[in-house]
């Protein structure tokens, strides 16, 4: 008598022995059918710094990475210019939600600026290389920045969002979440005004769902691809060991991502975390065992592209600032000429 059971019909990828112990192929970790990205897509990205790492690969492949707010690269130590608008790293889903709520006018944080001797700092972008010189300018810059954020979400067809952390520092005034603990980059820490939060899976999933809902008030057709950053915490503010805290944090993010991808239409989960942390993980990190190396990023990109419809023309036109060169040349020429008593 032959016994039958549900596992008999499953593909090799359902079995560790056939798809991990042997024949491991990172691209097979994603099981979706439709292309994640197509040449017609207008892509924006946000999230932890890992989200920025794949952008150069997208652009080199010829995808349209949308930028509505640009920055000069020099002095940009925190990578604000690497994203579609200069929001910088968005580590938590609460931060993403509040950014979108600010862009749509639903939330106005009370602690919205840090006035210091050398200028006015944005608590939500404390590492911007050039801050406002006074509060009037600050108001103009913030309003314009949020307009650019809204514009990015309005024009995009797909958002790549990488969940990075569960730990965050917030304002006691209204729960506004900062990307970095006040006092570390700018501002000053105030134990009465700032508190530590470590979001659980329900909170992260809820914030993600609210973020997507808010984004879709701007752009109802926006698709979302979620990933979880494999980069461990640089430090934990809990009383746990940083390794244990990292495991908790990544587990929460992974659960939340699954919950949202399986319940919200138009949302996919792409397993970048698993690709980096999988059987070949010993090849994917720098010596600090924290930062993902080029091989790790390449492994993610290769697997991602295996599930995309790639543009036919790679390498979009170089948009370097030839205008700047022209301006320099014109004034150099004219100064020389006036010296020649023309």
């Amino acid at each position: 008598m032959t016994r039958s059971h549900p596992y008999q019909q499953l593909p090799p990828t359902s079995f560790w022995s056939r798809s991990v112990a042997r024949n491991y192929a990172p691209a097979e970790l994603y099981r979706g059918k439709a292309p994640l990205l197509t040449p017609d897509d207008r892509i924006i990205s946000a999230g932890s710094c890992f989200a920025a790492n794949i952008v150069p690969f997208l652009e080199r492949a010829g995808f349209h990475y949308l930028r509505t707010e640009l920055m000069d690269a020099d002095g940009d130590r925190f990578g604000y210019g690497r994203y579609s608008a200069s929001y910088g790293n968005i580590y938590t889903s609460r931060q993403l939600l509040q950014l979108l709520q600010r862009a749509t006018g639903e939330f106005a944080p009370k602690e919205d600026r840090w006035v210091e001797a050398d200028g006015v700092y944005d608590p939500f972008r404390p590492g911007l290389p050039n801050c406002a010189e006074d509060e009037d300018e600050f108001d103009i810059l913030i309003r314009a920045h949020l307009d650019r954020v809204r514009e990015a979400f309005a024009q995009a067809s797909v958002l790549l969002f990488t969940l990075g952390l569960t730990e965050a520092w917030s304002s006691s005034d209204d729960g506004a979440v900062f990307p970095a603990c006040p006092g570390t980059i700018a501002g000053a820490f105030d134990g009465e005004r700032h508190y530590f939060a470590n979001f659980n899976a329900n909170e992260v999933a809820s914030d993600l769902k609210a973020s997507i809902a808010t984004a879709r008030t701007i752009n109802p057709d926006l698709r979302v691809i979620l990933t979880v950053s494999p980069v461990p915490l640089v430090a934990t503010a809990t009383d746990k060991h940083v390794f244990t805290a990292t495991t908790y944090s990544k587990s929460v993010l992974r659960v939340a991502a699954e919950e949202v991808a399986s319940t919200v239409p138009g949302v996919s989960y792409f397993p970048a975390y698993e690709i980096v942390m999988g059987p070949e993980s010993n090849q994917h990190f720098e010596d600090d065992l924290r930062n993902v190396n080029a091989k790790g990023v390449a492994a993610v990109v290769e697997a991602l592209f295996a599930h995309c419809e790639l543009p036919k023309v790679s390498e979009r036109a170089d948009e370097t600032s030839w205008q700047k060169l022209l301006s320099e040349e014109l004034t150099r020429r004219e100064c020389e000429e006036t010296m020649s008593d023309k």
Binding site: T68, L70, D147
Partner: peptide, 24 residues
């Protein structure tokens, strides 16, 4: 390479549909 405007203490006109950069 990108259009921008910025706030000025001397000129009030500012374009709202493009990126605004810091005076600094």
């Amino acid at each position: 390479a990108y259009d921008f405007d910025f706030s000025s203490k001397h000129v009030t006109k500012i374009l709202n549909n493009i990126q605004i950069i810091a005076r600094s």
